[in-house]
Design a protein around this nucleic acid. Sequence first.
DNA 1: ATCGTTCTTGTAATCGTTTACAGGCCAGAC
DNA 2: GTCTGGCCTGTAAACGATTACAAGAACGAT
Lengths: 338, 338
Amino acid sequence: MSRPTIAGVARAAGVSVASVSRVLNGLPATEEMVERVQRAVQELGYVPDARARSLKVGRTFQLTLAVADVGNPVYVTMMRAVEEVVSAAGYRLVVTTTGPDVVDEVALVRGMARGYADGLLISPIRVDEDLVKSIRECEVPVVVAGNVPAKAGVDTVRANSPKGMLLAVDHLVAKGRTRIAFLNGPADTVPGAARSKGFTEALKAHDLEPTAAAEATDFTFTAGRVAAPGLLGVGDEKARADAHLPDAVICANDLLAVGLMHELAALGLRVPDDVAVVGMDDSELAEQCFPTLTSVNLGSAERGRRAAELLLARIEDNDRTPRRIVVQPSLSIRRSTP
Amino acid sequence: MSRPTIAGVARAAGVSVASVSRVLNGLPATEEMVERVQRAVQELGYVPDARARSLKVGRTFQLTLAVADVGNPVYVTMMRAVEEVVSAAGYRLVVTTTGPDVVDEVALVRGMARGYADGLLISPIRVDEDLVKSIRECEVPVVVAGNVPAKAGVDTVRANSPKGMLLAVDHLVAKGRTRIAFLNGPADTVPGAARSKGFTEALKAHDLEPTAAAEATDFTFTAGRVAAPGLLGVGDEKARADAHLPDAVICANDLLAVGLMHELAALGLRVPDDVAVVGMDDSELAEQCFPTLTSVNLGSAERGRRAAELLLARIEDNDRTPRRIVVQPSLSIRRSTP
DNA sequence: ATCGTTCTTGTAATCGTTTACAGGCCAGAC
DNA sequence: GTCTGGCCTGTAAACGATTACAAGAACGAT
């Protein structure tokens, strides 16, 4: 005995399948009709088939969220916000991890043409011509949480990293720190490039020279630890004697910052007394780590929320002109800076 | 100009739709047929429609993973493992957050009957009759990562919390700690109940009495902070003078442990010198926090992996007898214990 | 040359819905 | 009493794939 279909319900209720469908979708019908159908539905335990419905109406009521790394707490923040918006609108969320390669992202975007989701919200870490092209040609609506060229003709919601960098540098300078270093993630990524540029500009605005800079191989905790010694000139006694040791480090995200702090502790350097540390993303990790981390809030929750809203809006009306929203940063000051 | 269908490809190639379908699915066909179909597919940029395919073959090639809180790093670990297994098998992963209420879980399980996924992997935090019933009656295969009664007749993969507790206590006792306290999450949850029982048993095995116990309102960082003062007898000078302050605290998960460590620091207590702290789950957070956290590894990655494998196996053959797998714990010793 | 087998291909039914269209019925207006 | 118009309801055609079945072609054996 397999699950009942709408035809079974129609038979049990002694009405036509069209009437059953109408009642189920809340279209006008007489008292009695509604009553009979509902009883039959109850009795048979009928539940409409999402697959069949999807085929007919051309919608799956699913949205895909693609991120590079589910382990990055900034995506947790974003995912929470997205999930809240889309589930309120009656959609389910399909979460996909793309990994660090742009080819995987392209494959994902192309694959959307299969129609298993009604829209895609992607936060690409690397962007190239192919990706832009695939997004432009994508069969389903796409919203990018991040930075892609305007010619992609797609809704975007992005952070303002340079402004965020400036907030961080302002704060450090106000506290008397001038030997500021930068721990970046891979510079060939979108956030990596933006933050690097922002850092340089922000220092220039204060007439400062970078004290040191390093590039971790990933935006992860481990990569942060690995890259830290190089940044701090460990093993280079001359540099340290010359007081070239930075008195503050800005990190391209919170995970890198936490990795760095572990290395600082291992070297016997105190945070913030010897070295102040600033993270970016203001993720949950920033208040969980010790000392709590001063972090640039790039508005990940808001970006997630607004990106989800844009996506829903575009699904309603695919002809609207693409919007490019920029979310303004703020600084969450905690204990890792004086 | 809408997207091409299989009929369009058939027309362009001058063959029948059946032939196109066969070529696309790798069924035997002549060189020439394959050639013509592939060229037409290329030219039109045809991509088969997942919705239509789902309806016909009765499969969506999606699996749902339901967890209570995406912010809990243990679920990140589990999700990674699950995603790896299912995507290797050609499935997509739909991640759903149920929240702390069992009614939401029941609604989710019931909703699976709509058929938008081929299977469900659920890690329920609270379990009642209704949930067990809904799981037993579920239209699609279900695997539970956690503890449900055998009568649910469902595949389960669970941790061995009592054994894990014993490992933690053994370790603390070996290091000379005897005034051991327990910071639990809500005791009316499955993990909360199991860990509470395990704690009591483990102490008894060492002829010890619990020094203190507290129950956080959630398995979260914030709840851990809030519950910590009560556990430590803050404000009760007599207790502290009587040396009733615990010299070790075992926490029901890593988030609670990190929350506790922040409160300890605020009180000027050193970890592990004054108070040793042990977490459970051995999540990424355990090595990211400071000091790094000794934590009971309850095998979340392995549980995720094996649960995913069970789910795939059951999708292949729904008649196999349910298996109940128990994953053994181990202890990851770090700096929060002596 | 004929028959039977095997291999390939095409026709058409099917999956479970939604929905355009048409038919039936009733009420109100003349 | 008849006609018009407005509800409800039912019939049947989609949606886009897969696949059972049949028919035709090719080929070897007799």
